[in-house]
Structure formats: structure tokens, C-alpha cells
Design a protein around this nucleic acid. Structure first.
Lengths: 237, 237
DNA sequence: AAGCTTATGACAACACCATTGACCTGTGAA
DNA sequence: TTCACAGGTCAATGGTGTTGTCATAAGCTT
């Protein structure tokens, strides 16, 4: 039943639930975000969200077409939060770095939503703002259009890719994390030096490094490579 | 019941199912991969896999601890296929580039499976081989251990991140792709130069570039940055 | 060849999930 | 004051992963 959903503006009657809560799209999204960040990834189900709101689960279908629709609304809210107070300083490399880290960070704050939505091109306001800003930084720095576009593409997809990867990791249940820890501390740690010399030589470093996100490293390397290319262009032009 | 699973080597009695199929870890993984690539990511459920195999769903728990364990096996199989005929040539940068492109490509060959598994540390044979190979290339090139590990981490997560992103994109239904095309050709193309000068100036380039994967570009930039750092170390050492 | 053990497949049940058709009730405009 | 209907609720459906229990045939021993 898709016509159960009333468009946001057209809603008029604010009838409270049995438990006295007045529902709204905004309240539902906020509660969903709270649920995820307080009780982990698995907590976001229609039923639990209903309980958290003090409403019957099926009430949510008056506001969202289905669970995926709800998740997209949550994701959209996230993009907004990530961009909220980003302001360019005038140094393209630092600004691009800041932009990437912010997007990555706000995605990671709510992994469950990011996992399901990182790959979609929305064409919505926040996304457009990010594209314009990123391109502006690169063209302003002196990159020719074609190269600015290529580098921007690599930049933004790298940010999204790492966000998806790290978010998926953060969204795993505790048991999966413990299992992963065990894999590093036993499976990899026990490999003999004869057959796996490189792993054996670096296993403590490996276990420690792999725990955190590699995004800052990868981002710095991408920006370093970009700067190196830029100097070629500016010498030429 | 975790002791239902018999380790791969110790399996002796090959009793056929009611429908005459002789199960094996390998057959199950292959069937799962086929199921996913033929009918999409949602088709991979224990029950459907049972039907596809001609066995009771619960039989699978003799081979895998749970559904997640099975998924990890599928992921490792993908890594194995990507690695299958990779041979190092002795030039670390070219070899690492080749390794990255192969992993990315084999992941994209089964987008739905990649979406589900790209983010996981499997600790299985193929993954271990890839880690050993990648680390070996970097250490052999002259990077100090700590830096080799850091760069390897960035390298492999970049490959996985792009794989996840591009796979998610490839897995979208045709309608979603057409919608995306429309976003570039209308939403972005119609933005006025006054408010969005950078998008307006590059829209044809944008639309063309965004269609393909940015992974080769990003990979090249990462390797260029790595090489630049290496020259610092070798000058010092 | 017969018998025994036990690995392994099958069955049935459980708890949880998203979703929806039908019903009921209070809101808010007339 | 009325009363249409938006919106909350109930109950049911068919899906999911998972496990306790049982049955049986594979492959060892004799």
C-alpha cells in the first residue's frame, strides 16, 4: 500500500499515539539515528523503532514507503550534518583534506545508514553543494578542467568508498569484531616465518594498523600526488 | 551448536542428500556465488541456497558455523579468483598496480557478492596469500616495516573500498542507472553559471568521467605518492 | 560379509523480521 | 454539533536464521 504515505507538507491531523507521542517525519528520523548510535547497528528495526517511539510499528508506514525509504531519509540527514559547518580557508589542499575527513567522519557516526546508502547518486541539494565546492577548489588551484574533474572523481569516490568500507566494519556486531581480532592475533600471528616471511616480520604492526581506518593515509597520498601533478601544470602554463 | 562444523580436511563420509547431491564446502560456495550473480544479493539466504543445492537448509550448518561464516568463504573465493594467475615481475610499482586492478576486477565480476563481503577480514587462505604478496612487494622495494604496513593498508582498503562502491553501483537495477544518467544530463546540466560556475563549466566532462570507475586514477595517485616517499627513504638510508 | 559407530542429512520448531488489509477513533473543518 | 477521514492499532502472512532431535548410511573393524 504505497498511498498510505502522506507527503510531508500535507499532514494536518496530529493525533497522538496510545502512549501520548505525536509522530512526525523528523521525530522518526531523529529517533532512528539515536537508536543506531546508542544501541548499535542491529537495533534499527521497524519493530524496535516503534517501541522507542511509543507507537505501533505499522504507524511508520504512514510516514515512509518502506524501511529503505526511511533509511534514505536518515542518510540525507547525515550528509547535511557533515557539510553543516565546513568553510573553505583558501588553501585548496587543506580544504579538500578537511572536506574529505568531514564527509568520512559524519558517515562513520552512523554506519548502518552509510552502508546502505553510500553508493547512490542523489542529485540533491547537499550533494550538489559538495560537487561545486570540490571542483571549485581544484580549478581554483590551477588544474585544467579535464584533470580537475578526474581528480575530483577520484577524491570523492575514494571518500565514499572508504566511508562504505569503514562503516560496514563499524556496523558489524561485536562478535564479528572479536572474531576479527582473533584472526589477527592467532591465524596471522601463527604463520611460520618460512612460508610467510613478510607477515611474520610485521604481525604486531599489522594487527595494530589494521584496527584503524586507512582513510587519512590514503587521502594524504592522493593529495600529495595531486600537488605533484599541479607543479607540472603551473611550470608549463 | 558450534561443534556441528567439521573442519574441511577431516570430512570423510560423503553421504548424498535425498536428491542425490554430494555436498562439499566448495560446492556450497560455488552454488552461493552462482545464486548471487544470477538472482541478486537478496537471493542469498540459507533456505534458497538449500533449494539450489538440493539439500535441507540446516545441512549447511554442518559446513559453516552460520550464514556469516558462509559469506566470508564466498568473499575469500573471490580474492582467490582475482589472484589466480597473478605473477610478480619484479617491479614493485607495476606489480602492486596489477594486483590492485586484478582484485578490483574480480570483485566487480560478482558485484552482489562484493557488496555483501568487501569489508570483511576473512583470515582465509587466499586473503593471507594476498597480504603476504603485497607486504613483500613493499618491503622488497625498500620501505621500512612501519611504512610498508601503512601503505599496504591504504592500498588494500582503497581497492576494497572502490570495489564495494563500484560493485554497489553495478548491482543497481537498470532503472536506477537511467535515473542517474538523467541527474547528470538535466539536474546538473541545468544549473546556472551564476550559482554553480564550476559545475557549469565542466558538465560534459563530469557526465562522461563519472560514468567509469575512478579506481585506476586513484590507484595511480596512491602509487605515485608511495614512490615519492620511497625516494626519501632510500636517499636517507 | 556382518556388525557397529557416528558423521551427516532431515525434520520441526522457535523467535524475529518487514509488510499489509481491516478496523477503530479522535481531530478539526464546516 | 456534526461527521469524514487521517492516522494509530490489531492481527495475520510469509519470509528469515538457527538449533534440538532423530534417522540412516558410510566406512571402519572383525
Amino acid at each position: 500500500m504505497s498511498d498510505r504515505v502522506v507527503p510531508p507538507g500535507a499532514r494536518r491531523r496530529r493525533r497522538p499515539t496510545k502512549q501520548g507521542v505525536v509522530l512526525s517525519e523528523e521525530l522518526i528520523v531523529r529517533t532512528a539515528l539515536r537508536l543506531v548510535s546508542e544501541h548499535g547497528a542491529d537495533a534499527l528495526t521497524v519493530r524496535r523503532l516503534g517501541v522507542a517511539l511509543g507507537a505501533d510499528p505499522s504507524s511508520l508506514y504512514r510516514y515512509f514507503r518502506n524501511a529503505d525509504d526511511l533509511l534514505l531519509a536518515v542518510a540525507d540527514e547525515l550528509i547535511g550534518r557533515g557539510l553543516r559547518d565546513w568553510r573553505p580557508s583558501g588553501h585548496w589542499r587543506a580544504d579538500l583534506r578537511d572536506l574529505g575527513l568531514r564527509l568520512h567522519e559524519s558517515a562513520l557516526a552512523h554506519p548502518q545508514a552509510t552502508v546502505l546508502s553510500a553508493c547512490r547518486v542523489t542529485g540533491r541539494a547537499h550533494e550538489i553543494r559538495a560537487v561545486e565546492a570540490g571542483l571549485g577548489l581544484l580549478r581554483g588551484a590551477g588544474f585544467p578542467d579535464a584533470e580537475a574533474v578526474r581528480i575530483y572523481h577520484a577524491f570523492v569516490d575514494q571518500a565514499l568508498g572508504f566511508a562504505a568500507l569503514d562503516a560496514a566494519n563499524a556496523a558489524l556486531p561485536r562478535s564479528a569484531h572479536e572474531a576479527e581480532e582473533r584472526v589477527w592475533n592467532t591465524t596471522y600471528a601463527d604463520l611460520p616465518e618460512e612460508t610467510h616471511p613478510n607477515i611474520a616480520a610485521t604481525v604486531p604492526l599489522l594487527a595494530a594498523t589494521m584496527r584503524a581506518s586507512a582513510y587519512p593515509t590514503a587521502l594524504n597520498m592522493l593529495l600529495a600526488a595531486a600537488e605533484a601533478r599541479l607543479s607540472v601544470h603551473t611550470r608549463r602554463g
